[in-house]
Amino acid sequence: MNNKELLISAIGAFIAVFVAGFFSNIILQNFNSPLIIASAGASAILMFGLPHALVSRPWNLIVGHTVSAIIGVSCFYLIANTLLATSVAIPLALVGMHLLKCMHPPGGATAVTAIIGGEMIHHLGYAFVIMPIFFNSLILLIVAIAVGSFRDKNPFEDVS
Rank of each mutant, 00 (worst) to 15 (best):
1 M>K: 02
2 N>A: 07
2 N>W: 07
3 N>Y: 09
6 L>M: 11
6 L>F: 08
13 A>T: 05
13 A>S: 10
14 F>Y: 09
14 F>V: 09
15 I>L: 12
15 I>A: 10
16 A>P: 04
16 A>D: 07
17 V>Q: 02
18 F>V: 09
19 V>L: 14
20 A>Q: 07
20 A>G: 04
22 F>N: 03
22 F>W: 08
24 S>G: 15
24 S>N: 14
28 L>H: 07
31 F>R: 03
31 F>K: 02
32 N>D: 15
32 N>C: 05
35 L>V: 06
37 I>H: 05
38 A>L: 15
40 A>N: 08
41 G>Q: 13
41 G>R: 09
41 G>A: 11
43 S>P: 05
44 A>R: 03
44 A>C: 14
45 I>H: 06
45 I>N: 04
46 L>C: 08
46 L>Y: 03
46 L>V: 13
48 F>G: 04
50 L>F: 13
52 H>G: 06
52 H>Q: 13
53 A>H: 04
53 A>M: 08
54 L>R: 13
57 R>S: 04
58 P>V: 13
60 N>M: 08
65 H>A: 06
65 H>N: 14
66 T>Y: 07
66 T>Q: 09
66 T>M: 12
69 A>K: 00
71 I>R: 00
73 V>D: 03
73 V>T: 06
75 C>D: 04
76 F>D: 04
76 F>Y: 15
76 F>I: 07
77 Y>Q: 12
77 Y>R: 04
80 A>V: 13
80 A>E: 15
80 A>Q: 15
83 L>Q: 10
85 A>D: 06
85 A>P: 00
86 T>E: 06
86 T>G: 12
86 T>H: 01
87 S>D: 12
87 S>K: 11
90 I>V: 14
92 L>T: 01
92 L>H: 04
93 A>D: 02
93 A>W: 00
93 A>Q: 03
93 A>Y: 00
94 L>Q: 06
97 M>A: 02
99 L>T: 14
99 L>P: 00
99 L>C: 08
101 K>M: 04
101 K>P: 00
102 C>N: 05
102 C>P: 03
103 M>W: 07
104 H>M: 10
106 P>C: 07
106 P>M: 06
107 G>Q: 03
109 A>W: 00
111 A>E: 05
111 A>S: 12
112 V>C: 03
113 T>P: 01
113 T>V: 10
114 A>Y: 03
114 A>S: 05
115 I>V: 10
115 I>K: 01
117 G>K: 00
118 G>K: 14
118 G>H: 12
119 E>F: 01
121 I>A: 05
121 I>N: 01
124 L>N: 08
125 G>M: 10
125 G>T: 04
126 Y>C: 10
126 Y>P: 11
127 A>C: 11
128 F>H: 11
128 F>V: 11
129 V>T: 09
129 V>R: 01
131 M>K: 07
133 I>G: 00
134 F>A: 13
135 F>N: 09
135 F>R: 02
136 N>A: 12
136 N>H: 10
137 S>I: 06
140 L>T: 04
140 L>S: 03
141 L>T: 05
141 L>D: 01
142 I>V: 15
142 I>F: 14
145 I>S: 02
146 A>R: 10
146 A>N: 08
147 V>L: 00
152 D>A: 12
153 K>F: 10
154 N>R: 13
154 N>E: 14
155 P>A: 08
155 P>F: 13
156 F>D: 11
158 D>E: 14
159 V>H: 11
160 S>P: 05
